[in-house]
Design a protein around this nucleic acid. Sequence first.
DNA 1: CTACATATTAGTACCTGGTTCTAAAATGAA
DNA 2: TTCATTTTAGAACCAGGTACTAATATGTAG
Lengths: 198, 198
Amino acid sequence: MSKKERQQKLLQIIDGNPFVTDRELTRQLKVSIQTIRLDRLELGIPELRERMKQMAEHSYDQVRSLPPDEVVGDIVDLQLDKSGISIFEIREEHVFSRNGIARGHYVFGQANSLAVAVINDEIALTASADIRFVRMVRLGEKCIAKAQVRSLAGRGGKAEVDVFTYVGEELVFQGHFVVYRSAVEEYSEGGNRNADRH
Amino acid sequence: MSKKERQQKLLQIIDGNPFVTDRELTRQLKVSIQTIRLDRLELGIPELRERMKQMAEHSYDQVRSLPPDEVVGDIVDLQLDKSGISIFEIREEHVFSRNGIARGHYVFGQANSLAVAVINDEIALTASADIRFVRMVRLGEKCIAKAQVRSLAGRGGKAEVDVFTYVGEELVFQGHFVVYRSAVEEYSEGGNRNADRH
DNA sequence: CTACATATTAGTACCTGGTTCTAAAATGAA
DNA sequence: TTCATTTTAGAACCAGGTACTAATATGTAG
């Protein structure tokens, strides 16, 4: 095996399992530990502990900045039981890698989260929805979802919410949501805008 | 400062910054490094490197188990243009932290992904859907989605797919999806079961 | 074949951030 | 005072390295 081949293999192994020590690498590549270390040096791969530290710091930053929270999208305006607006930017993790088109359930998720948030109730649950993906949404586009409460029964009843999602002037998604309110055990998909974060 | 107070403070500091070394802690708490280590021992707090390792492994597991990929759920059976079955287990990251109920767009996403995957076409795109959350899904429950292709127009036409999602015997979700096939630029939400992973 | 360059291996000293253990000193309460 | 608890000190050891020096292999061009 040539040096290049070995270094390619080394990259693969570490990519496949970043938690591998140099000692384990000597076993897999059948070269001395010094060679492994020279290879890492040439390839700019830091030592195991540094790799773990970077991963830990990265995930720590992510946890701080990206709370995997109740809502998809930022709710920028909310008039309870009336209307609401949410903004959601399509990033790498939301699209099909092949063509850069947003995965439907994110677009749906933004609308759904907003529909639930706009209903002023301890527990609001989506019961059903009628939706249309009007045009596909691409990586980098900013989706602005606007919700309007259409009808509103009393506590324990159902509310109807229409959501229209735009990119710029263009309509990309529309949905009609039926949301149940309070203590409804039969019907599913719950949420609460006041939910404790973390 | 009493021992208890100090240990409380130590917990706070490490919670606030898991990357702190014992040496830094001696400065902040004004006790010897041995005391810090005895405190960590009593409190069951592992050493810095172990903390970093755990964080790194945790985030690595998440990345592995949660490929921000084309499909939500594991497709276990697929008869193109006919039917398909997908399994999806509701985990921590899929539920509202407050009540452990699955967020709707994951349940939707499983069904949607399956509806798109079952259509035998380079690019299949969801055009619209009519869905109902029959009962809420809770943390730990395993959703089994079954898709049936109801009608199938030729290439470039539209297909209709029904998806029923069960937890055990119970129906939790049902959806009727209209999926467009091939080179349809107007209609959105795309996917391709053969898409390159990674 | 020889000479030279490159690649590989070996070995030592040293580093961080600890653990484990023993033991001495300080502190507090009965 | 006496005894228990708490705190500090110090030494040996560990993993998983870095940094450096030096010897040995291996390949390749002339």
